[in-house]
């Protein structure tokens, strides 16, 4: 499954995910990539083990003498079962299906055959699916923050390298890149930023709030 993945999630992003300090948009990319990648699943578990070591060695605070009794009182309470996480559908990993609430993506044309579907956004980031026709370029853009791009179908190349299904590109604020989709099936990616994008040539800056990009 993950044999061909050559671009992984950086360790510090997996650590932040384990610690719960990563924003919602990046967490989605991490969860989606880990669903496809044994290597990063193992590394995430290693960070969770490090978290366990911190829990084991941290200064303890004594608890009230009746706390255990209080816990025991609730041990057999009926519990509402949590909704089961969705599984993979087609090229979309379970966490992406969760973000889409189980429905097919609703694409909006961006021009040049490129389409996008916003799937989440808040103050600390924005996540969307992008559909790029074969050999089509995604407009040249830089970022205010970091951008994570996970390939779900097809592939693309840019100044940094070539990215296949499962690969993640990490583009920091300094990188201005022009991803071009491979020939073959259309390229579908999950892209997340921790700040709004700034397009150079594609859309006037003024239109950005309108498209939410």
């Amino acid at each position: 499954m993950s044999a061909n993945i050559s671009h992984h999630i950086p360790s510090e992003i997996l650590a932040a995910y384990a610690a719960g300090s990563l924003g919602q948009a990046f967490s989605l990319v991490v969860a989606a990539h880990v669903s496809l990648c044994t290597e990063c699943r193992a590394e995430l578990a290693a960070h969770e083990a490090a978290g366990g070591a911190v829990l084991d060695t941290i200064a303890a605070e004594s608890v009230s003498p009746d706390l255990f009794a209080r816990v025991l009182d609730h041990l057999d309470d009926p519990v509402q079962p949590e909704p089961a996480p969705r599984g993979r559908e087609g090229v979309f990993p379970g966490p992406v299906m969760d973000a889409l609430k189980g429905k097919a993506p609703r694409w909006k044309a961006l021009g040049g055959g490129v389409k996008q579907c916003l799937i989440g956004g808040d103050d600390d980031g924005l996540s969307r699916l992008l559909f790029i026709p074969p050999k089509q370029a995604v407009p040249d853009h830089g970022h205010h923050g970091t951008e994570l791009t996970l390939v779900l179908q097809g592939g693309f190349s840019d100044e940094v390298g070539h990215f296949d299904v499962g690969d993640v590109e990490v583009a920091d604020a300094e990188l201005e890149h022009t991803p071009v989709a491979d020939a073959g099936p259309p390229c579908i990616v999950l892209a997340a930023t921790d700040a709004p994008l700034k397009f150079n040539t594609f859309l006037p800056r003024l239109l950005q709030p309108l498209f939410g990009i």
């Binding site: 384990a18 610690a19 719960g20 578990a45 969770e48 083990a49 978290g51 366990g52 829990l55 084991d56």
Partner: peptide, 14 residues
Amino acid sequence: RAQVSSWIYQIARN
């Protein structure tokens, strides 16, 4: 797959 402290750490963070 996870030692007890690691598993409880995840629950506590969540």
